[in-house]
Design a protein around this nucleic acid. Structure first.
Lengths: 192, 192
DNA sequence: TGATGATGTCAACAAATGATGATATTTGGG
DNA sequence: CCCAAATATCATCATTTGTTGACATCATCA
């Protein structure tokens, strides 16, 4: 069991990234091993270093989407009537964890944010970034803190649901979760 | 640099646990190494295995307090007038992350909850435990979910402040943080 | 055909890490 | 004092992990 024997036929660059995404999402940066990623992709271990230089390079390749996600949240934060922004942001953010396309990267960010600087920075940007946008320049400091707190509360709900599988949060239907979380978030857009 | 040479004279069981707490809090279960713990304690590496059997045993030893903390939170959840429970719970929970005595174990739980089953279970208990207490038996399912959501939101605020150092949350004065977080938590004790 | 670069594999290394067994040192009781 | 248990250290192992360099395969194109 020493050598990573290919299982399926096709092992190209794309399948490596896909495998890396799964492993990083499941075990975080430190916990994921190049050998398991290679085996899952049906490729020799050395190919990873050959393509991406080192583990950091491969990891960076799996963290492309968050910038797009950040823009989506920033839009939800600054679009439409202020009375509905709480639900907008809640639905948008929690939706990132729900959708299969973005779910893995959210998990990766949260799991790796501790042991990897790149993930830590990206996660920070995902939470504080919106408040740093030019659209929020004229905003008083109190309001900025409010948005940060709202994002932090959302992060907690998402982690409880998807990372630690805390009941009954993990079992709530998505719409129920949004409905029950929204008021806490909306509150930060109201007073102060 | 192969051998862990003692730095200070005294290296006993207690100092090993203290050193382990710091390392586990700083790097999580997987990231902490026995050799660094031993070096920090001024002790040979082998002594750790000798005393605690293996890494898991040592780790378990550093996770004693949470049970006490869990009771504190459960008390805050079920004591006093219902209008002030939001602030009680908020202050109690966030205070666990603020106080030096319990701060390291909170960090350890959060950082290790991903890679270690024991930490994951304990963290789950810390969040869901209170809602499973007998004191909450007659509670409707909706209210139980409300408490879980409140705890999740608090977890998010704590992680944002102490783990990811997200601004401006990390710089807020404690009382300000409590004041601005309480309404979201109190909300889960009101309606529904 | 033959050169070339991309794609991929193999064997192996160095470092880090958790763990173990033999042995030394200290401590306390009879 | 002497013995035994606790306390502690040393040398060493097996394993895992990231990384590297040499080599193989293969398609493309002059």
């Amino acid at each position: 069991m020493r050598t990573g024997r290919p299982v399926n036929g096709g092992g190209n660059r794309a399948s490596i990234i896909a495998a890396a995404r799964q492993e990083f999402a499941a075990h975080g940066y430190r916990g994921a091993t190049l050998r398991l990623i290679a085996m899952r992709a049906g490729v020799d271990v050395a190919l990873l270093s050959h393509y991406f230089g080192n583990k950091d390079g491969l990891f960076a390749e799996t963290l492309e989407l968050p910038e797009e996600a950040r823009r989506g949240i920033a839009a939800a934060l600054s679009t439409g009537p202020i009375e509905t922004r709480g639900e907008q942001v809640t639905r948008c953010y929690l939706g990132l964890w729900e959708a299969p396309a973005t779910r893995e990267q959210m998990l990766t960010l949260a799991r790796s944010g501790i042991s990897n600087e790149a993930a830590s920075t990206r996660l920070r940007n995902l939470l504080t970034g919106p408040t740093g946008d030019t659209a929020f320049d004229g905003m008083p400091a109190g309001a900025r803190a409010g948005i940060a707190l709202a994002m932090a509360e959302l992060l907690g709900v998402a982690i409880a649901r998807h990372l630690f599988h805390i009941q009954p949060i993990a079992e709530l239907e998505f719409e129920t979760l949004v409905a029950r979380t929204t008021p806490s978030i909306q509150r930060h857009f109201g007073s102060t």
